[in-house]
Design a protein around this nucleic acid. Structure first.
Lengths: 234, 234
DNA sequence: ACACATTCGAGAGCACTGCTCTTGCTTTGG
DNA sequence: CCAAAGCAAGAGCAGTGCTCTCGAATGTGT
């Protein structure tokens, strides 16, 4: 009943699978998803390429595994930043989490590109990726809900009539205790945050924005106020 | 001095170059950038792959040409939308241009991914791409400048001290007649707009946002107000 | 403990890719 | 008119994802 519970074979499979993912992640970080080669991974691990298909039925399945890990890694960073900023006010908490997202992206550009850049060839992400992909969003929802329960939220611009049912549906799905207008603003700001990060990372800010950190901090602060957060102790 | 001014050969070169780009664009639209194959393009055009290298020294150069064309196509759509909305108020103009960007993206998803998604392998865009890439941004700057000169702008949240010099530099580069706080907000909203479009296009809104048009319209309306635009006749 | 089934690594091979180099042919310009 | 430049074609190199087959190692049921 040790960690070798299921026998030598299952254990070896775990280890080899992990080694493949590790080496693949190394190549991903070094050269990007497009140059990730099954053969090169196998070569580096001292095995032959066909052996690798015992562990991942195709290159896209390997990528899917890396995508899930990337979402989890990013989500973990966001959650950690939120936990560390627990003593700050809602706006500062929001900013801290946003900065954690940006920092992670700058530290793992190719993995960020893998999950928030163009989808690969004809690849469509399986449902397995949904929960890990939601973690960052859930952190922001948590900030808003906590603020709503304690220091309160300001009301954003009223919803147009054609968006009311949609906003109420989103509210029921995501955070039933929040006003729909704030939920709609939150979802928009969530996407907008990744627009800021992506432009920074992918070079669209070259020759335009110089002091990226200060600019980003100000921009996400504006987003925080836009969703209804107000300064003050949490 | 007709269009065959430089002789049969130069004319043929233009035509073949155009045919290559057309076929490449077709494959790009059909399968995405990763599956764009020089050999397949040549095959479809009835020539041999090596002949294609007389026109584009590498696959990346072909992609660069397509990137420039995509930026120009998107920029043209944005400019056309702006021209058509000339009678509307500033906010409505902003929304119309934003919708044109989104519509273009939905109509050319792979080309959008090419220019605003992950950068290709180790590829870095040459300076040739800068002017076409700026066209959309320039339209938004134009809307803000016109509004500033006529109906006026509201003041966004004041700039923090560490962002003042940066905002003033951006203002000098982009629109010296605008207040720096509005320029900083504009640059942020520019990136945020593409965050909204990207999330829509790349599936991040799946199972979250249902009525995409209404949601997008509301979100970019909020961005318009955020940069200081106010409703009213243009 | 033995036999059967499953799992695994290795190798060969297919069809494809980007790219280079050489070989002739055609157009161009002095 | 003839040399120079532009061009298409073919062969070839190194690499890719993926499939199939074949022994060997490792499981499991009796």
């Amino acid at each position: 009943m040790s960690s070798t519970a299921k026998g030598v074979r299952a254990r070896a499979r775990m280890e080899v699978t992990a080694a493949i993912k590790d080496e693949a992640r190394r190549q991903l970080a070094a050269e990007g998803a497009a140059k990730l080669s099954l053969r090169a991974v196998a070569r580096e691990l001292g095995m032959v390429s066909s052996a690798l298909y015992r562990y991942f039925p195709s290159r896209d399945d390997l990528l899917t595994a890396l995508i899930i890990d990337a979402y989890d890694s990013l989500g973990e960073s966001a959650e950690a930043a939120h936990a560390e900023a627990v003593d700050a006010g809602p706006v500062q908490r929001w900013i801290s989490v946003a900065q954690a997202v940006r920092d992670w992206a700058l530290r793992h550009p190719h993995e960020y590109a893998l999950i928030y850049g163009s989808p690969v060839p004809g690849y469509t992400a399986p449902d397995t990726t949904v929960p890990p992909a939601s973690r960052v969003g859930l952190v922001f929802i948590g900030i808003l809900r906590e603020a709503h329960a304690t220091s309160g939220l300001t009301e954003p611009a009223p919803l147009p009539a054609d968006l009311r049912p949609e906003a109420e549906r989103m509210t029921a799905d995501l955070a039933p205790d929040l006003p729909p207008a704030n939920v709609a603003a939150l979802v928009a700001s969530w996407a907008e945050l990744f627009g800021l990060v992506g432009f920074d990372l992918f070079g669209q800010f070259n020759r335009v924005v110089e002091h990226r950190e200060a600019f980003f901090r100000h921009a996400v602060g504006r987003l925080a106020h836009g969703v209804g957060l107000v300064d003050g102790r949490g």
